[in-house]
Computed example of a mutant assay.
Amino acid sequence: MLAVRQAQKLIKQANISGIDDVYAFNLPLSITDNVDSTVILITDANTTPEIWASNDFHGLKREVEIQVFYKQDFDVDPEVIESKLYRLFVDNDWDLGENRGHTYDPDTNQITTSFYVYNLKITGGN
């Protein structure tokens, strides 16, 4: 399963309070102007061959970007949601990468954040 789909499934199954929906690869046009829901967008960030032996790789380091778009009047503290997301990924054998911090969108008055998670998928040799 693609890393993006795996991450999406993980978040959806966790049913974290304050997250209204989770999308993979792109946001539907109907969601782009919605400021009344907290949504997550997961996209591919990087895939690198790993575990080299006998001139062949035996794993893929898969990195995804998690972008959270908080609704304007959020009722759950963003740091609570983010901590639950971090713990969810760590508890499921993902590693935490860079966090881009919070930004404010002056057009929609929304707070957003982006962070990266990655895992190692063992593929075997040729």
Rank of each mutant, 00 (worst) to 15 (best):
Y70E: 03
V35D: 02
Q72F: 06
Y116K: 06
R5A: 13
P106C: 05
T47N: 09
K61F: 09
T103G: 08
N26W: 04
D20W: 10
I40F: 10
Q110S: 06
A24D: 08
T103E: 06
I111F: 04
L29S: 09
T103I: 06
Y118A: 12
R62N: 06
D33G: 14
S30D: 11
K9C: 09
S83Y: 01
T108P: 10
I31L: 07
T38A: 03
T103H: 03
Y104P: 09
D73T: 11
L41M: 02
L120W: 00
S83R: 05
L96K: 04
G101K: 05
G97Q: 07
S54V: 09
A14I: 01
N99E: 09
N109Q: 13
K121N: 12
V90K: 02
G18I: 03
V39H: 00
N55A: 13
S83V: 06
W52N: 07
L2M: 08
I66S: 01
L85A: 06
Q110H: 08
I11A: 04
A3H: 05
T47H: 03
Q67S: 15
I40C: 03
L41I: 00
Q72H: 12
L120M: 09
P78C: 01
L10S: 12
I81E: 01
I40L: 07
D44Q: 13
A7G: 11
L60V: 04
L41F: 02
D107T: 08
D75Y: 01
V68E: 07
V117I: 10
T43R: 07
S17H: 08
D21A: 09
H58N: 14
D91C: 07
I11T: 03
Y104T: 04
E82A: 04
T48Y: 01
N109G: 14
V76A: 09
L60E: 03
D91W: 05
D107G: 01
T48S: 05
Q67A: 14
P49M: 05
E98N: 08
T112S: 14
I16M: 01
T112C: 13
K61Q: 13
P28D: 12
A14G: 02
Q13F: 08
Q6Y: 15
I81Q: 01
H102A: 04
I42C: 04
G59D: 08
E98I: 15
S114R: 15
A7D: 06
L41A: 01
V22W: 02
D93M: 11
D95K: 13
Q6H: 14
D36L: 03
D73K: 10
A3K: 08
E63T: 12
